[in-house]
Simulated scan of single mutants.
Amino acid sequence: MAEAELVFHTNPMSRGRIVRWMLEEVGVPYRSVVHAYGEDMKSPAYLAINPMGKVPAIEHRGVVVTEAAAICAYLADAFPQAGLAPALDNPLRGTYLRWMFFAAGPVEAAVTARSLDRLPPPEKAGFVGYGSYEQTMDVLEQAAASASPWLLGERFSAADVYVGSQVDFGLAFKSIPDRAAFAAWAARLREREGYRRAKAADDALMPPPG
C-alpha cells in the first residue's frame, strides 16, 4: 500500500456507511475493501489492522484509524480543503467537538442500552454518562432544532455527517423518537450529493434479498 493511499475497510451493513458518506463529502480518492462478518473480520490479516475485528477502519499515510467518529474527525483535519471542520482558532471548533463527542458518547451509549433493555433505574442514572435515555434524546433534539440548516449554522461539517447519521439511522430503525426536529434535519441531510453517492455505493454492495 502506498503511504499516501487512503484505504477504507467496511461492510455495507455497518457503521461504515457513516465513513463512506464522510469520504464522499471530503471528495478525495479512496479504495474500498469490503469485509464479510465472521472469519474475514476475525482473520489475522484484518486483526493486524483493527484488533477489535470490526469495521470501519481506514489506513492513510501509514496510520490506522478506527471508530467512526474518530475517522470522521481525522478526515476533516487531514483534508482541510474540504472545509468540514473549523480551525483550532475558530470559536465554532468547540461546538463542533461538543456534538461529535456527545453523539459518540451519550447518544451511542443510551441508544445501545435501550436496545438491549439495559437502561439503569432512575436512582442509578448518575452512574452512566448519558444520565437517562429521555434526557439524552431531549438534548439531541435541541441540537437538531438548532441546525439551521446545519449544526454550525450555514457551515456543513463532519459533525453533521456523524451526528446526523445517528439521527438518520435512529429514525430508520426506531431507536430514537420520531420528532419534528429530527425529521427535518434528516431530510436536509438526505438531499446532500455526498449522502446520495455514499448510499448508492453501499446499497449496491448489499446482498440480494432472500
Rank of each mutant, 00 (worst) to 15 (best):
S43F: 09
V26I: 15
K42M: 14
K54V: 10
A57C: 13
V63T: 14
M100S: 00
A45H: 02
V65W: 08
M22E: 00
A113M: 12
L75A: 06
Y30H: 15
G126Y: 05
P80A: 10
P91V: 13
A104L: 10
R118N: 15
F102A: 04
I71T: 07
A145W: 01
E59D: 09
H35Q: 03
M137H: 04
G38D: 02
G126N: 08
Y130C: 08
T136E: 09
A45R: 03
Q81E: 06
A113E: 07
L116P: 01
G105E: 02
E141F: 12
D40T: 11
S43D: 08
E59L: 08
R61E: 12
G105L: 01
V64K: 02
T95A: 15
A109Q: 15
V28D: 03
T95D: 09
F101Y: 11
A70W: 00
A143Y: 10
L47N: 14
G126T: 03
P106I: 03
H60E: 05
P120R: 07
R93H: 10
P91C: 13
E39F: 09
K124H: 13
L84S: 05
P86Y: 04
P122E: 09
D40M: 08
D40G: 10
D89S: 13
I58M: 08
D117R: 13
F79T: 02
W21R: 02
M52F: 09
S32Y: 14
R31K: 15
W99Y: 15
E108N: 06
P121K: 14
D89L: 11
A76Q: 00
L92M: 14
A145I: 01
S146W: 07
V34Y: 09
V64E: 01
V63I: 15
V33R: 03
P44R: 05
